[in-house]
Write a protein that binds this DNA or RNA. Structure first.
Lengths: 119, 119
DNA sequence: CCGTATCCTAAGGGATACTG
DNA sequence: CAGTATCCCTTAGGATACGG
């Protein structure tokens, strides 16, 4: 009877299962900027130029590229407002809102980490 | 009195604050494989070759590179066992364990996401 | 078994200039 | 204001071969 082997096999299955799930998530919100953009929009809808200001370090090219991908994945909506001049409003969809816990968890850990390495 | 302006300014501060925290986290566990490796090791300590098997798709070069970085950030420990032949055991440090909620949140979202796009 | 070294390609990403 | 296009450099990452 290989009790241990069976247990190990079971855990490995769970392990691979989790890794696949993690991979799925990263496909959607991986990359350097997406989580930051989502975190920003979780406060309130923003225009392109606002995001450019808030997400420090991002370039215009990357911002529009990432926004397009987030829109494709139905996490945000893009709305052209007929102001003068025209402005564009981005906001989280209901589905995008489901990422809030994730962004908060990530931000929390980073906050604590900074304390750890400083202190 | 610009009530709205003041409020907005306050929120923007929180926003940038969060983005900085997110950036800090991604500095440590960003990249394609680190979260997967941590997720794996959260089940039990593993050897190099086990990880190579569990983390599907990773190459040997990337695995050792990522492990080294995780070790540098004190998230995992590397222990050479004097077996025959020599094996190397990796495991989460106590600090590394603090990432568990994060990996779980990410895995959960990915699991649900797969259901969404299939269903 | 546990890596490192080398080589090479593809993707990431910044700067700048330009368009509607 | 909200992007697109171009150029160009840097990093990610795979394959293979080799060393301890």
């Amino acid at each position: 009877m290989e009790k241990q082997s069976k247990t190990t096999k079971g855990i490995n299955k769970v392990c691979k299962h989790n890794i696949r799930a993690i991979h799925d998530t990263l496909d959607v919100i991986g990359g350097k900027w997406k989580i930051s953009i989502i975190s920003c929009l979780s406060f309130y809808p923003m225009r392109y130029s606002e995001l450019l200001r808030e997400v420090e370090g991002i370039s215009g090219k990357m911002l529009s590229r990432e926004l397009k991908e987030l829109e494709m994945n139905q996490l945000i909506t893009r709305e052209v407002l007929s102001t003068q001049p025209i402005t564009v409003q981005y906001q989280l969809t209901e589905y995008g809102e489901t990422l809030k816990p994730l962004t908060l968890t990530i931000a929390d850990w980073g906050l604590n980490h900074r304390k750890q390495i400083i202190g």
